[in-house]
């Protein structure tokens, strides 16, 4: 049986010193730079006024009452319900009661919302600019170089991933081109940043993009784009239909059964 021919390419050792090492070092340094740039650009979260805090937390109180109503006896639940439901319906807790019923202002004209969008834009720029620059740099100086050989065989499907920039059809997949090495670094350096900068760094752009993809991951008590009055009204309705089943009902029997 014929053994597959092992391709041997004699690489100049200076390829290692002048391409592989510089790309790696530059990538790591860019990550660190990005981390500090993000810290610099981060604006402190806007302080909520007393009334905004009251609005959010009063709504949470209603949610708590609905979820944990079972710890109460009936009279105490009723008294709370009778207080909260009319208050919600009348908009007692609203931060801006005079704006009740008016349609929400266009987010574009609201300076606070604009600020948030600007912050997002800034992050995007910090992410995109270095990435573009480095890719351009690699393309200009190192395109077409084969700089390392993987120690394990791979199927031909990896060819496009590992040999971008090298248009040789018969080259073994194990050879990696400089541009592909850049991509490997881009996606694989997170542990290195974790080691250097601590675990919650903002050096890697991959994790940033992940976070942007599902913004619902962080639990927000109140979406700023929603009308608080509507939220209060729907919560009032929820409270109205809440059925109380007190956990204290028949507890003596449960205890006696459990511990006897």
């Amino acid at each position: 049986m014929a053994q597959p021919v092992v391709q041997t390419i004699h690489r100049d050792p200076s390829l290692f010193y002048w391409i592989l090492v510089p790309i790696t070092v530059v990538m790591i340094l860019t990550g660190i730079l990005r981390h500090y740039a993000m810290i610099l650009l981060q604006s402190a979260p806007k302080k909520q006024g007393v009334k905004d805090i009251r609005q959010t937390r009063s709504l949470m109180r209603g949610v708590n009452l609905r979820n944990n109503a079972s710890v109460l006896t009936r009279p105490s639940f009723e008294s709370r319900k009778n207080y909260l439901v009319p208050a919600y319906q009348d908009g007692t807790f609203l931060a801006e009661p005079e704006k009740r019923g008016q349609p929400r202002a266009n987010p574009m004209s609201d300076p606070a919302a604009m600020e948030g969008m600007m912050g997002m834009m800034k992050n995007q720029v910090v992410m995109m600019v270095p990435q573009t620059l480095i890719m351009g740099w690699i393309n200009a100086f190192f395109s077409g170089f084969v700089i390392l050989k993987l120690p394990f065989p791979l199927t031909p499907q990896f060819k496009s991933m590992l040999q971008s920039g090298v248009g040789t059809r018969d080259l073994d997949v194990r050879w990696v081109s400089s541009l592909s090495f850049y991509f490997l670094c881009l996606f694989g350096l997170q542990p290195v940043y974790n080691f250097i900068l601590g675990s919650n760094n903002s050096a890697s752009q991959v994790s940033q993009q992940m976070a942007q993809m599902n913004p619902g991951a962080g639990i927000t008590a109140m979406d700023p784009n929603q009308d608080p009055d509507k939220l209060f009204l729907s919560e009032a309705e929820n409270l109205e239909v809440t059925e109380l089943r007190s956990i204290l009902e028949g507890i003596e029997g449960r205890i006696l059964e459990q511990l006897r």
Binding site: T73, R74, P75, S246, L248, E252, L256, L259, R260
Partner: peptide, 23 residues
């Protein structure tokens, strides 16, 4: 009528008392 929680009967209270004492 207000639907308040019922007052437990004497036997239950007594056995609860015993339980607490032994514990």
């Amino acid at each position: 009528k207000t639907g308040e929680l019922s007052v437990p009967d004497k036997a239950t209270v007594e056995s609860l008392n015993e339980l607490a004492t032994s514990k």
